[in-house]
Simulated scan of single mutants.
Amino acid sequence: MAMKDYVDAFTHRKPKWPLAGYAPGGYLGKCYACQVLMADVDKRAVHCFPCAVEQAQSVMEKQRAMVRELQEQIDKLKAVIQIVTPSCG
């Protein structure tokens, strides 16, 4: 891969806002999570950028935990099906 194929990972495209309660803009606001006064945020922003990132990470971890729990349930159901289904052969 040639060097020209690489892009700046942070700035190669603009993110889609809002992200977990944060969006840039021209307003002032207060972060509900950390109570800091914010400048240059969207008028509907409820989080500063660091708190929005933490919020997004928290939601992702909860989703991962739910997926793990569902996978465990699937594995248990598969085991039960093996027990109650007669073997062919």
Rank of each mutant, 00 (worst) to 15 (best):
A20F: 02
K14I: 12
R44Q: 09
G21I: 05
K62V: 07
I74E: 02
Q82M: 10
Y6D: 04
V67D: 01
P50L: 04
A20M: 03
G29A: 04
Q71W: 02
D5F: 12
L37H: 09
W17S: 01
C48W: 04
M1A: 10
A23L: 04
Y27T: 07
L28C: 10
A9Y: 04
E54P: 00
A23E: 04
L19R: 05
A33L: 03
E54L: 08
P18H: 07
T85A: 07
P50V: 12
F10A: 15
S58K: 11
M60Q: 15
C51P: 00
A39S: 14
G25I: 08
C31N: 04
P24R: 12
Q71L: 09
R64H: 09
K14R: 13
E72K: 14
A79P: 00
A65M: 10
G26M: 10
Q55A: 10
C51Q: 02
Q73A: 06
A9C: 07
V41W: 00
R13V: 08
L37G: 00
V7H: 06
I81N: 06
M38R: 05
D75W: 01
G26A: 13
T85G: 02
W17T: 02
Y27I: 00
A79E: 12
M3Q: 13
C34L: 04
V36L: 11
D8S: 11
R68T: 06
K16D: 09
L19H: 08
S87R: 12
V7A: 06
A52C: 03
S58H: 09
Q35M: 08
G29L: 02
A79M: 07
Y22P: 01
V46I: 14
I83W: 02
P18D: 13
V41F: 01
Q63G: 01
R68E: 11
Q73D: 10
D75Q: 10
A9G: 07
D40L: 09
V84Y: 07
A2T: 14
C88R: 15
I83K: 07
G21K: 05
Y27F: 10
A56Y: 09
V84E: 06
E69K: 14
F49G: 00
C51K: 02
Y6N: 06
A79G: 11
A52K: 03
F10Q: 15
K14C: 02
V67S: 02
E69Y: 09
K62C: 09
K78W: 01
P50R: 04
A2I: 14
V41A: 01
M1L: 11
R64L: 11
V53C: 10
V53Y: 02
M3N: 13
K4G: 03
W17A: 01
L70Y: 05
K30Y: 03
P50D: 11
W17I: 02
V7M: 05
A39R: 15
R44Y: 11
L77T: 09
F10D: 13
C31A: 04
K14P: 01
A39V: 08
C31T: 04
H47K: 10
G29I: 00
L37A: 05
D40K: 15
A56F: 05
